[in-house]
């Protein structure tokens, strides 16, 4: 308690502080303008292009796109674009399955790691490995695993005693399952890592106190650990939700969005639009819509987080 000093942070008040804050603003102004330029310029450019029918095939510079002005036609098209809507639904489906699965698996693993067991360090390293694999390599790995004559089918054959040759990647619904398995494999470690940090941060004395007061494992988990980890859980979920929404590389290498469009997510769709159709005005419109949606979601998450952290911090 010797750390009690009188209002050390309060120095910001007073004229002095106000003057120095102004000086600070002047000094950082160039940098701030640069950041603003980097962030805002592409955004404005995108907005501009999204209101036109511009494409690099037109042969004109993007700044001349006004000659192909089509107002909100891109947005109207988007609203009735079935391929877009199903890509969005598919993306959401992957998110709804993968993020909770990754969360629960990560939390379970993290909880296991709170206790000591033989080989803990080795397991720890192994667990983190998927996260370090280059997504493209992971994609190729799973592409091989899920071949008709691949190890997954071999394993299933051995287990069931029958010859199983499932065409994972060419069956529309199974392809989706394979893609999800790959995502969960690769990203559960990140959840695990973040949640483990959260668990370690819960004061051990509080857990001991609860134990001595007769709380069992479940009670301790629900009444002490979860509430104290609220902030970190929200952070972990937010990170993974945003990331998952953009799912692309592993998936693209495994299925290329196929069979047909069975695993086509938003990112894959956009990629195809850019490379095949070269309809950049339309792509710009999609990109803006996604950005807007994500920003709103993130805003909600952050405000929730702020609330949670004020409740939890002592």
């Amino acid at each position: 308690m010797s750390g009690v000093t009188e209002a050390p942070g309060a120095a910001e008040a007073g004229d002095d502080a106000r003057a120095s804050r102004k000086l600070g603003l002047y000094l950082t102004l160039p940098a701030q303008l640069l950041v603003l330029f980097i962030a805002v310029f592409p955004l404005l450019m995108q907005l501009y292009i999204s209101l036109t029918g511009w494409s690099p095939l037109t042969g004109m510079g993007w700044w001349n796109a006004w000659s192909l002005w089509n107002s909100f036609q891109n947005y109207v098209e988007l609203a009735v674009d079935n391929r877009w809507w199903s890509a969005l639904l598919r993306t959401l489906l992957v998110m709804v399955v993968c993020v909770p699965a990754e969360f629960l698996l990560g939390l379970g693993l993290a909880t296991l790691f709170m206790d000591n067991f033989y080989g803990k360090r080795a397991f720890y390293s192994i667990l983190l490995m998927p996260m370090m694999v280059v997504p493209a390599v992971a994609g190729y790995m799973f592409f091989m695993l899920f071949q008709s004559g691949g190890p997954v089918n071999d394993l299933l054959s051995t287990l069931s005693g029958q010859n199983i040759a499932i065409a994972w990647l060419s069956n529309p619904s199974l392809a989706m399952v394979a893609v999800m398995v790959a995502d969960i494999w690769q990203w559960t470690p990140l959840m695990f890592l973040i949640l483990l940090a959260g668990l370690v941060g819960v004061q051990e004395d509080q857990l001991k106190a609860a134990t001595l007061l007769g709380a069992n494992w479940r009670q301790r988990f629900v009444t002490i650990m979860l509430p104290r980890m609220k902030t970190i859980i929200i952070i972990a979920l937010a990170i993974r939700t945003i990331e998952n929404f953009k799912i692309f590389d592993t998936l693209y290498i495994m299925t290329g969005g196929g069979p047909g469009v069975a695993t086509e997510t938003i990112s894959v769709y956009i990629y195809k639009l850019i490379t095949n159709d070269l309809n950049w005005g339309y792509v710009a419109a999609i990109a803006l819509v996604i950005l807007l949606t994500l920003s709103v979601a993130l805003g909600i998450a952050i405000s929730r987080m702020g609330k949670a952290s004020t409740e939890v911090t002592k």
Partner: peptide, 17 residues
């Protein structure tokens, strides 16, 4: 605590005006 003693020190030191 909070009776102002550390602030006096900071005033002597010149960390506060």
């Amino acid at each position: 605590p909070l009776s102002g003693k550390s602030t006096i020190l900071r005033l002597i030191l010149g960390l506060e005006k």
